[in-house]
Amino acid sequence: MSSLFEYDKDREAASAAKVRALEALLIKKGVLGSDSVDAVLRHFETVAGPFNGARIVARAWVDAEYKARLLEDTPKAIAELQFPGMTGAEGEHMKAVANSVTVHNLIICTLCSCYPWPVLGLPPYWYKDPVFRSRGVREPRAVLREFGVTISEDKEVKVWDSSAQIRWFVIPERPAHSEHLNEEQLAALVTPEAMMGVALVPSPPPA
């Protein structure tokens, strides 16, 4: 796409200076404190992030009853784990969907970039890019193949477009040959991409 358009050759330096000037002016005018933006960024390093989603998925893998509760009432099941901020911004109404031998789920937001912040953090660039948002609903299997994931035609693909209040995330399938791992080790296998439905969780190295 980018070859279609002419950009300023110092595009990044110009934006960096402009955003710094804007932040400085807003601090001077009392709209922001000099510690406000950093407080936001710290939240996404410590409170909201894919580390939460990975632990939720690992719990669902080791505890079938927990998984059933998670699918039935996602916020209530997440609350059991007592992580902070789980009904916070962009997580006010979350729902989990589970991959299985018969179903593969993919999350998308064709209108903007809705994403379950408390459990997944902030979305990667490609999720917000118009190309994914355009193609993910019409040819999800082709897009998944580009991500290295081939879904056989006898498996149903479900695409979840986040157009109202619900923020979706995916419980991927537990990989084969992972019986020797504990919950924490399982969580370490779960990537944000797997919880968006564009990656599978590969089997761990043998014990």
Binding site: M1, E12, S15, A16, V19, R20, T110, L111, G121, L122, P123, P124, Y125, W126, D129, P130, V131, F132, R133, S134, R135, G136, V137, R138, V143, E146, F147, D161, P192, E193, V198
Partner: peptide, 22 residues
């Protein structure tokens, strides 16, 4: 946007949230 054709491959190598520090 949903369904628009001929856009080419998804830039899925860009897993970064922020493409520049600013």
């Amino acid at each position: 946007l949903g369904g628009l054709e001929n856009l080419g491959p998804v830039n899925f190598f860009e897993k970064k949230v922020f493409m520049a520090e600013w």
